[in-house]
Amino acid sequence: MNIMRKSSLIILTVLFLLSLFYSISYAERLDRALFKKIEANLMCTDGCGMYLKTCENATAQKMRKDIISMLTKGMNEKEIYGRMISVYGEEVMAAPPVSSKFNIIAWAGPFVAIIIGFIVIYICLDRWIFNSRKAEAGTDINEKEIEQYEDYLDEEIKKHY
Score class of each variant (00 low, 15 high):
94 A>Q: 10
80 I>Q: 00
106 A>M: 05
111 F>A: 05
99 S>M: 10
107 W>K: 13
108 A>C: 08
92 V>D: 00
79 E>D: 13
99 S>D: 13
105 I>V: 13
85 I>T: 10
90 E>F: 07
89 G>M: 05
101 K>Y: 09
79 E>M: 12
101 K>L: 14
106 A>T: 04
112 V>H: 02
99 S>K: 13
115 I>W: 02
104 I>P: 02
91 E>G: 14
100 S>R: 15
84 M>D: 05
110 P>R: 02
95 A>Y: 13
97 P>I: 09
102 F>K: 15
85 I>C: 03
106 A>H: 04
88 Y>D: 03
104 I>F: 10
80 I>K: 01
93 M>A: 11
86 S>F: 05
107 W>L: 09
99 S>V: 12
108 A>H: 06
107 W>I: 05
87 V>W: 01
95 A>Q: 08
93 M>F: 05
96 P>R: 03
82 G>Y: 03
87 V>I: 11
115 I>T: 04
78 K>I: 06
82 G>T: 08
85 I>D: 00
82 G>F: 01
111 F>R: 04
91 E>A: 08
108 A>W: 07
89 G>A: 06
94 A>K: 15
100 S>F: 14
111 F>L: 04
80 I>V: 11
92 V>N: 03
105 I>W: 12
102 F>V: 13
87 V>A: 08
91 E>H: 10
110 P>N: 08
78 K>P: 01
115 I>R: 01
107 W>V: 11
94 A>M: 11
93 M>T: 05
79 E>W: 03
110 P>F: 03
105 I>M: 11
102 F>D: 07
87 V>H: 04
91 E>F: 04
97 P>G: 11
104 I>M: 13
96 P>N: 04
82 G>D: 14
97 P>S: 14
77 E>C: 00
104 I>R: 08
81 Y>Q: 04
111 F>G: 07
104 I>H: 03
79 E>K: 09
94 A>T: 03
106 A>P: 00
97 P>E: 12
83 R>K: 09
110 P>S: 03
113 A>V: 10
84 M>S: 09
90 E>S: 13
108 A>K: 08
81 Y>H: 11
77 E>R: 12
89 G>W: 03
93 M>Y: 00
115 I>Y: 02
82 G>C: 04
80 I>N: 01
95 A>I: 10
80 I>G: 00
99 S>G: 15
115 I>E: 02
78 K>V: 05
87 V>N: 06
102 F>Y: 15
86 S>D: 12
114 I>R: 11
103 N>F: 08
110 P>L: 01
98 V>G: 07
97 P>H: 06
111 F>S: 07
112 V>N: 01
90 E>Q: 12
90 E>P: 04
106 A>F: 04
94 A>G: 08
86 S>M: 07
109 G>R: 07
81 Y>G: 00
97 P>F: 10
82 G>N: 14
